[in-house]
């Protein structure tokens, strides 16, 4: 069982951590260097956690559990206008990022208003490429209830945030509702506001756990981090990608930030040690996000084997 963790420490000797991850059979998901600090998101075998903790101590770093690591969350606002941004949508996105998730902000083209709010098929499809979605709604109960049609067709867990207290039963199409985080015009800094952000992270975590449980019933042919490692080795051009996270992990696959037309063959031909190619065990298709490549790994029930 792999445990998602986040290492925060100095740049000096952080290579030792990366080497240790490889030695333990874990995976490095993301590496962020900000001046003299480095943040590493990793998956480590649970039984070897003590070894990593000792190493962290020796390097005077910090090791935290990052329950959202290896997932991608969409934060959706009705539009990108000053009414909805930067507060509180950026606070939510930033908070999810701090807990290990890759968060993408999506502003709808025509999401405003009570009666006139609309969602296009493209927006729905784009959101469906994520693992969970947070809709940031406002302070009026009637509007939140009315906007249900925006997320009714979404297949991934939907977390709604809004101001007023509401019963879960009022929003049957949402996985969870988090109150006390409606429209605000200042940065979240009060204890109650931070607590609401924590509630969102908890709600996203619970929804992702449900998806994980669902996947566990019919496991994927291979885990996405392993596919990522092999792609990194066999499609070296990915290292030239300027995207912040050239290979983004999802629970059921990954997104490769290279042009689809040019690289789809190379990605399909990626071969595992067992001799199977990625094209045989996964669907490789164009992503709705730019012209990236979306990979969805087939479950064992489809392929009949595990690599």
């Amino acid at each position: 069982m792999l445990e998602p963790v986040m290492f925060t420490g100095g740049v000096y000797k952080h290579d030792l951590v990366i080497e240790l991850v490889e030695d333990l059979g874990g995976y490095l998901l993301q590496k962020n260097i900000t001046q003299s600090e480095v943040i590493l998101l990793m998956l480590i075998p649970r039984e070897d956690m003590q070894i990593m903790e000792d190493m962290t101590k020796a390097l005077m770093g910090k090791l935290d559990r990052a329950p959202l690591a290896g997932t991608e969350t969409a934060v959706v606002t009705p539009t990108l206008a000053i009414h909805h941004l930067p507060h509180p949508a950026c606070d939510v996105a930033e908070y999810l990022r701090r807990h290990g998730s890759k968060s993408n902000m999506i502003g709808m083209a025509r999401g405003v208003g009570r009666d006139i709010a609309q969602m296009t098929g493209y927006e729905t499809a784009l959101i469906n490429e994520h693992d969970a979605v947070v809709f940031t709604f406002g302070n009026f109960k009637k509007c939140i209830l009315k906007k249900e049609h925006l997320y009714r067709n979404i297949e991934i867990p939907v977390i709604i945030t809004g101001g007023p207290d509401m019963e879960q039963g009022d929003l049957p199409y949402a996985a969870e509702y988090v109150s006390n985080i409606g429209r605000i015009a200042h940065r979240s800094r009060k204890a109650t506001e931070i607590e609401s952000l924590d509630n969102i992270v908890d709600a996203v975590g619970r929804s992702l756990d449900m998806t994980r449980e669902e996947i566990a019933k019919d496991p994927l042919t291979t885990i996405p981090p392993r596919a990522m490692e092999v792609i990194r080795e066999q499609v070296p051009d990915i290292n030239q990608s300027y995207a912040p996270l050239p290979i983004t992990l999802n629970l059921k696959g990954l997104r490769i930030k290279l042009p689809y037309d040019q690289y789809q063959e190379a990605v399909k031909a990626v071969t595992f040690d067992e001799g199977v190619t990625l094209g045989e065990i996964a669907k490789v298709m164009p992503s709705r996000m730019k012209n990236y490549i979306l990979v969805r790994i087939s479950p064992t029930s489809v392929t009949g084997f595990v690599v």
Partner: peptide, 21 residues
């Protein structure tokens, strides 16, 4: 705000924030 006490109080904060800004 008719039937929306919470929303009304919250909007009071938003208005104060924006006028202050």
């Amino acid at each position: 705000v008719l039937d929306e006490e919470y929303g009304g109080n919250k909007y009071k904060e938003i208005i104060a924030d924006i006028l202050q800004d």
